[in-house]
Design a protein around this nucleic acid. Sequence first.
DNA 1: CCATGCGGCCTTTTT
DNA 2: GGCCGCATGG
Length: 924
Amino acid sequence: MADPKRFEPAPAPARPAAGGIAARAQAKREAPYLAALNPEQREAVETLDGPVLVLAGAGTGKTRVLTTRIAHILNLGRAHPSQILAVTFTNKAAREMKERVGHMVGEIVEGMPWLGTFHAIGVKILRRHAEMIGLKSDFTILGVDDQIRLIKQLIEAEKLDEKRWPARVFAQIVDGWKNRGLTPEQVPGGEAASFANGKGKKLYAAYQERLKTLNAADFGDLLLECIRLFKEHPDVLKQYQSRFRFILVDEYQDTNVAQYLWLRLLAQMPTTAAPSGGLVLRDASPNSSTGRAERGPYGDAPQDEGKGAANDAFDPHPEEARSAVSKEEAQGVSLEDTWGEPEALDSGSSPSVAAPGMTDRKNICCVGDDDQSIYGWRGAEVDNILRFDHDFPGAKVIRLERNYRSTGHILAAASTLIAHNEGRLGKTLHTEDVDGEKVEVTGAWDSEEEARAIGEEIEQMQRAARDEGADHPLDEIAILVRASFQMREFEERFIQLGLPYRVIGGPRFYERAEIRDALAYLRVIAQPADDLAFERIVNTPKRGLGDAALQMLHDYARKQRIPLTEAAAIMSSTDEMKPKPRNALRGLMESFARWRKQKDTLPHTELAEIVLDESGYTEMWQKDRSADAAGRLENLKELVRSMEEFENLAGFLEHISLVMDTAEGDSEQKVSIMTLHSAKGLEFDTVFLPGWEEGLFPHQRSLDEQGKAGLEEERRLAHVGLTRARKRARIYFATNRRVHGMWQSNIPSRFLDELPAQHVEVKEAAGGTGGFGMSGYGPSRFDEAGAFGSKYTTPGWQRAQGRRGAGGFSENGQPRYVPDGVFNQDEDYGDDVAPPRSSSPPPGGGRSAAAGRREGVKPRVPLTIEGELIAKSSGPASAFKTGDRVFHLKFGNGNVTAVDGNKLTIRFDKAGEKRVVDSFVERV
DNA sequence: CCATGCGGCCTTTTT
DNA sequence: GGCCGCATGG
């Protein structure tokens, strides 16, 4: 990477490691762990000074670099374990890293207190300085459900219609703001106005205030409040800056703006720095695509609407920016390093350097892969990684391109696919492995056949392996789906086959109702002021304390400005309440008093058992006859079991608010079923990738809402999927699929076209009849009715290709893609409807003639309201009427028995009665 | 206060 | 087609 103007971090030349002797000693020890690395990996490990970005493609040894780097730093004596900040996104990653570093260096890691997730480290920092941001150090961390409940109350207090302005929606908006590092004051006016008639900002502020009174923080706060703390208390920031001599970041492509700002502060980069036009922008690397520079971190570009508003985070309104800068700089220049130890010398030399804010170490090493950024929808900014060398001037960029995981064909397929993305830094993965099996692409008639085919292949692989006396462990097989509704089909099939499987993902353990309830009891015991927890369980199990009773408590508590539990204690002995609820309340409060006493005498696990028992909570589930009650009881036991690892209740609660994943303790061999998202970071010998159809993958919604950016993210997801496979990758698409209870026909995913033919083998599912209906691209899922009765007779793939030539694709088989993610714009809208609200207006290009249209096509009725597509009973009347004789591609002939908007109920001759969207049948 | 029924929604998910 | 959340009525 070009770095024409390199700011040499001052101390580089004569930087003694922890004394000359240690340095010498280290030279000998160098060999073993470094020798095991390839040259690029080694460079990534050894380049310790200044900012480093390691672009680590899938399977190139990312974790190894990270862990070896830590080991190396420790080994050279460049820092103590407690002087290294290493952040990850998930607890799992943190755990793994800890373990692997542990193996390399031994017990020292015990003393790596700053290795953890962004959030865990955020909490740790906040607890130490809680008073400075208006909290007490024992503040609670709110989960999403608490968050929503709280917001609901605020919305009600504002007398807003909770229907029109749902708390859930606002919670997401607030989350988005926090992800972007925006405090209430910083939220751009326009954006804030869009919720609740301009009350957005006020609500956000009220929410924050309420959190403070509850002595609570939500997940977003763990970072945002840290940032605020750092900005308002430069001395505190200073402390951490001098502590962290080395910063390592895993999965950098997943960082959001808040995390980015947080890192910049700690890495001693000026956040709102160098007045623009300065050094940084001029450094714009030559190969960076246009558009990046003006979105640079210093926000010198005019704000554009929507997405661009993210810039606000980088460049709060000018006044604020200025004051922030001057404050930081004032402190920054006069730094007097608080570092107590001998090797602190280095900082002394740099402050004199002219460049403002450019002081000290900036030994930050970010590892990531822009091609694996798949969390844009929850605030991750791919830009963070794309722009790294702007943001961290003088950064060294190291590419790891040698793949140690997949065979040649798989890697080639994945690389070719991802090369279709424009917004990427570009890497060329290569392997020295054999070519192996080609990537198989199989067309199936419907999702059921897809599941059947995959089931059979798995059984066959098992058989084949057994014949060879080998074994294809089921653990090495995964089915990676785009959306979780796809899973059911596989589960059903596998149950039939008796094939053991495991679904990974789904609701997190600690998000389950029974766990949250149990925790709420414990929280109230540990923290009587935890109103949200109290509210949660006050009537769970039912004890006659409904809304009315709760309302009284609320009123009283608010009036007296006391926590709910206190209000409850008082009201249980006054006569304001009716006797019945009052007695119930008194009973509950007495229980709590008793449990609180027992807290200090009994082991916490025992206490938990007593609480669950005496509160009637366990009993509630024992009486419950629904199917999952047993599982819930099991979960409760698991919860108690998991408490054993902790010293006390407080320690456990702290842990559980941040962590708590089901330790997936079963060792039985099983096929894994999971979403592509949860597959990131995993690998398997064999990977099945079903559902590669337009609309599902790439997902329509992603296209509609994010346009090109959405498409590229979907493509990265496809790339992630393929690169999970070591030896076999098998892709499927189904022509028909049931979505929301109705059958829908789909065409194969455009991603299939983007795979290199020479590395792919096209198959047809056994007994498959293939065939391609068409649901159409673009904003409508229900248009293009006339694609049926098609002339396609050739098997699947050819038909797919044929179909493409016919509509929406240019000659070379490339999709005729217009940059806003909308296909065949012209065909999808009637004259009377507007194009989708989200994307930019369709450019002139991309209009295809209605080529490939067959005649006899039912005039399509576009159902659009303000660009939102609807398919509901209120829609315009269908062109069909009761009694019509119709043909459906999957079900054959039948008679319409009922019409509901565009939904038809049809009695099919063979298939029985079904509900179908009208665009999928034709009159005969 | 609780059970029942109807209407609306429905991608991905960590902390 | 299924779940969740809310409104109604007992």
